[in-house]
Amino acid sequence: MDIQKAVERLERSLLLLDRTSAWDVIFEVSSDTDPFETASALVSLTLERIGKDWEKGNLSLSQVYMSGVICEELIDQLLPPKSPTRIDQPNMGIAVLEDFHVLGKRIIFSVLRAGGFELEDLGHGISVNELVAKVSEKNIRVLLISVLMLPSALRVKELKEQLIESGVKIIVGGAPFRFDANLWKEVNADYCGHNPADAIRIVKQITSMS
């Protein structure tokens, strides 16, 4: 099947919350060759496109969220979590620093897992010290941080100071970083993503370097 057409069909199904037809598209594509690799590639491309459309204001966050959840479920059916066939990558973790607004984390978690990556959910409402301890305990090498509140975003600087010697890469995202394009540099993050497409791109970039 033409991949571009498959992406368009999958996007349509996801935006209509139509799991059955989304599964049909994934099944048609994945039946040809390596089922997991092709399916996760298709899902990544589709979710990247949906994420970019949200960034442009053409789609809403609920559509991004529901698409990610549906794709995550479908990919899990195709290949269970923790399967060795999933993408080989450094240990990754994701957390919401200090507050309880988990939607951004949930979206990025789903989108990356749907794209074939494995990552640990390190929780929410978590302090800098608690997060540093978890990163060390689980040997996390790539840490994604989602925030909604400005004070939480400013705390990333303190987090980075505590993790700098361990070489953990920090990717930040969330509303304060969207409203101030320089904030991620101010808090010494390594990368900043504004949407799921950015998350996939940055993680692929880090993975290819490791």
Binding site: S62, V102, L103
Partner: peptide
Amino acid sequence: PVMQMGFDKYLDLMF
């Protein structure tokens, strides 16, 4: 409801 039940759970409820 974002504060009453969390954003993700609320979207599940709504949809």
